[in-house]
Amino acid sequence: MSLLSAEKLTKTYRSGDIDVPALKGVDFSIEAAAFVAFVGPSGSGKSTLLNLIGCLDHPTSGTLKVLDTDIATLDRRAAARFRGEHIGFVFQDFNLIPVLTVFENVEYPLRMVQQWPAAKRRDQVLRLLDAVGMADQAHKRPDQISGGQKQRVAVARALVSDPKLVLADEPTANLDSETAHRVLELMKKMRDEFRTTFVFSTHDARIMGEAETIFTLEDGRLLNGGSHA
């Protein structure tokens, strides 16, 4: 059974009196523990698609099932709960909370979303920080570490609640090539270690090759059914 499946998925935004179609009938499916990239130029619909998969938005028509849940049926609260339980996010700008330390940033979903007990939280956070190679920086604040380190912390935060799926929107856009490759390698390693599905978007040709399955988007349409790299 696929982890993600979309059928005739469309998303249309309204700008004044004009309808702007962002996705035009997209079909795809993604298996568990896959390492998938949605690629395409700016405006091709990558971010829109990731927002839909991440239950941050609702489709205009068609069906999108994430972990067998039709995301169109989720209201605001249910969507927040679903994201907290099943989905991790890695952002282009890292989006770490500046007043919290590295440890606390990774701990945040367990503390504020899932409310794990303190001892269990600590073990899990240390395990993840160790996995991403940031255990020795745990006490530092985000402004005291480099961009690559921030993204490692962000990956750890995304994985800390053992989600089935991690979504990364342009995760390497603000990193140099070498760091970008390292972050992708880390994500792959995490996929192997935690059997988590990674879906990321990029228009950076340098890192597209890191994906095992590539979906190419252009003007809101999928140009392929998921080519294998």
Binding site: R77, A80, R81, F82, I87, V113, R157
Partner: peptide, 16 residues
């Protein structure tokens, strides 16, 4: 605002 977007995206309930 971006920080609020981040914590909302990672599943923080609106009440929190």
């Amino acid at each position: 605002i971006r920080e609020i977007g981040t914590i909302a995206a990672i599943g923080t309930p609106p009440s929190r």
